[in-house]
Nucleic acid binder design. Sequence first.
DNA 1: TCTAGCATGTAAACAGTTACATGATTGC
DNA 2: GCAATCATGTAACTGTTTACATGCTAGA
Lengths: 186, 186
Amino acid sequence: MSLRHALLGLLVDRSASGYDLMKLFDTSLANVWPATQSQVYGELARLAENELIAVTAEGPRGRKEYSITGAGMNELRQWLATPAPIQPRRSDMLLRVFFLNVTSPEVARGYLEGRRQLAHEQHERLKQLEAAIDWEDGDLSVNGRLALEYGLRLSAMEEAWADWARDRIGGEPRPRSADATDASAT
Amino acid sequence: MSLRHALLGLLVDRSASGYDLMKLFDTSLANVWPATQSQVYGELARLAENELIAVTAEGPRGRKEYSITGAGMNELRQWLATPAPIQPRRSDMLLRVFFLNVTSPEVARGYLEGRRQLAHEQHERLKQLEAAIDWEDGDLSVNGRLALEYGLRLSAMEEAWADWARDRIGGEPRPRSADATDASAT
DNA sequence: TCTAGCATGTAAACAGTTACATGATTGC
DNA sequence: GCAATCATGTAACTGTTTACATGCTAGA
C-alpha cells in the first residue's frame, strides 16, 4: 500500500489537487511508482477520510486542493524509517528466460537480443532525461537524482547481461568467429 | 497473466500435481515469479478447463497429475515468441529514496546503508545457490543459470549503487575525512 | 496411534487496470 | 462558439495475498 505514501510524499512540498498529483506521477514518479487516475482519486478520498490529508482550498470545476496534515507527516516519516521489504520482483522477462529451451536457439537468441536493445534504449532515454533536468532546484531533485542513477545502472547492467546471455545460447554461433567450444543445443 | 505460462513451462519437463508445482515455484521460480497455493490451484483448474493441460493420472489423497497438451505447448511457444512487455517495475525502495529529504540525513544514510547490506546479503545468498546447484542436469538449469546470473549482477549493482548514494547524502559526512564540500542538508 | 507431510480447495480483501461518464472553464 | 484542458468520479475486471477449511496416508 505504497501509493498512499507516494501521495503523502508529493504533498509535503506543495498542496495539490488530484489532477495535479496525477501529472506529478506521470512525470517525476513514472519510473518508480506509476499510478492511474482512478487509483489517485480513490486513495485521496481514503486519505482524507483518515485525516492524513485535508482539503485546504477549493477552486473552479470542483477542484479540491489537498494538504498533508500532522498525522500525515507522522505516517510518512514512520514509513520512511521502516526498512523497505525485500520485494519478490516478479519478472515477466526472466520467466521467459527460464523456459527459453522450449524454443529453438534462434528464437532464444532473438529474444535476448531484443532485450539487449530495449535495455539500451532505456539507458539512452534516461541519459537524455538526466541532461534535461535542472539539478539545481533542490530537495526532490537531489533524491530524484539518486533514483535516476539507479535506473542508469540498472539499464546498463541489463544490456550487458543480455549480451552475455545471448552469446551463451547454444546452437549455431553468431556470424563472427566460427569456433564453438560449448555447443549443447537441443 | 504469466502465472499460467509459468505453470505450462514447468509442465513441459514433467507431469506434476498442484502440490508438486507449488514446491517447484518455491524452489526454482521463487526469485522470478513467486506464487501462492491459492493461485496455483485456481489457475490449474482454469488451464484444465481451457484444455491447455489435462489430468493424466490420479493418485492417493485426491492427487491429480497434470500434463501439458498440444494446445498448451502452442500457447507456451507463442508466449515465448512474444516480446516481453516493458514492465513499469514499481519499487517500494526507490519510492522511499524519492522522499528521503523528509527525514534527517542520518536516517537517510541509515536507510541506504541498510539497502547496501541487504543487497550484499542477497548477492552472497545467490553465490551460495550457484555453488550448490548441479549445473550438469541440462535443460532447465541452462536457463536457470542465465536468470541466476541476472540476480548476481543485479545485487552487485544494487550494493554499489547504495554505497554511492549513501555517500552522496549531505549533512555530517561519514566518520572518515571531515571536509564537507557540498553540505546542503535540511 | 499419532504426527508430519501430502493434497485440494474456497472466501474475503486488497491492489491495480481499463473503460466509462460527466461536466466546467479558459483562451482562441 | 468551440476545442483543449481542467477536474472528478464510478464500475467492472484481473491478479495477488491471507486466512480458512478439510481430509488422507505413510511411517515412526
